[in-house]
Simulated scan of single mutants.
Amino acid sequence: MASFVLPHALHGRGSHKVIAVHGWFADRSAFDPVLPDLDQEAFQYALVDLRGYGEARGETGSYTSGEGAADVLALADRLGWDRFSAVGHSMGASVVQRVLAAAPHRVRRLVGISPVPASGLPLPPQQWELFSSAAHVPENRRAIIDLTTGGRRPAAWLDRMVRRSL
């Protein structure tokens, strides 16, 4: 078994297992607002931090959706979950789509919240430059968050998200 274990938090005790994957510039805390609304009697949820985010922020890797899918499947193995549902938000939906492609017999249900397709999304050159440089240019991360939220997030929230991703 690989030495890397995808950081996660378990919620609930139900027999229907669910792995939830956050989107870009987030971590598993992105799901905190919905925790009170989850059925924790019927379901058990594993909320994860992908490599480069949250508790896995310093973890090395290729940081691809394929690697994320392999990490999710390894976590399911570690938890003893032969079959589970998967929820992915934004880029996390790309990861769970790849989980389905790699192990369709293991995925009970798949839910994408504002999903990015696993096949990728072609971007015009100017947008590609913005996204591809975001890992190293805080102003570009801020611009992406502002653009994708319609500028509705307060500046303090944006500053926190940009700092969190550094």
Results as ranks from 00 to 15, higher is better:
L10N: 12
S29V: 09
P138N: 05
S85C: 07
V96A: 04
S85H: 03
G92A: 07
L166N: 12
R142K: 10
G80Q: 08
S119D: 14
Q127T: 08
D32Q: 11
A156M: 08
H22V: 06
E139W: 03
F31T: 02
F43M: 05
I145L: 15
G88Q: 03
R109C: 07
A42S: 15
R57T: 12
M161K: 14
E41T: 15
A143Q: 13
K17P: 00
G61E: 14
F4Y: 15
D77K: 08
H105F: 07
H8E: 10
L147P: 01
E55W: 11
A70H: 08
S119V: 12
I145V: 13
P138K: 02
L75N: 02
V48K: 02
A103K: 04
R153E: 12
S65W: 12
R106C: 09
D82M: 10
W81H: 09
D71M: 06
L130C: 03
A155K: 11
A70W: 06
L73C: 05
G80N: 05
L147R: 12
A74P: 03
F131A: 05
H89T: 05
V5W: 12
S114F: 09
R141P: 03
P154C: 06
A69Y: 02
A118V: 09
A69H: 05
S114A: 14
I19M: 04
D37C: 14
W81L: 05
V116K: 03
V34K: 10
S90T: 04
Q40L: 14
L123E: 13
T149M: 07
D27Y: 00
R141E: 03
S3F: 11
F43N: 06
V48L: 05
R153N: 07
S94N: 10
L38W: 11
F43D: 00
S165V: 04
R83P: 00
S133G: 15
V34G: 06
V162A: 01
V95E: 01
L6V: 09
D39I: 04
L10F: 05
H22Y: 06
S165C: 11
P36S: 10
G61Y: 10
D146Y: 06
G58K: 14
V96K: 02
A134L: 00
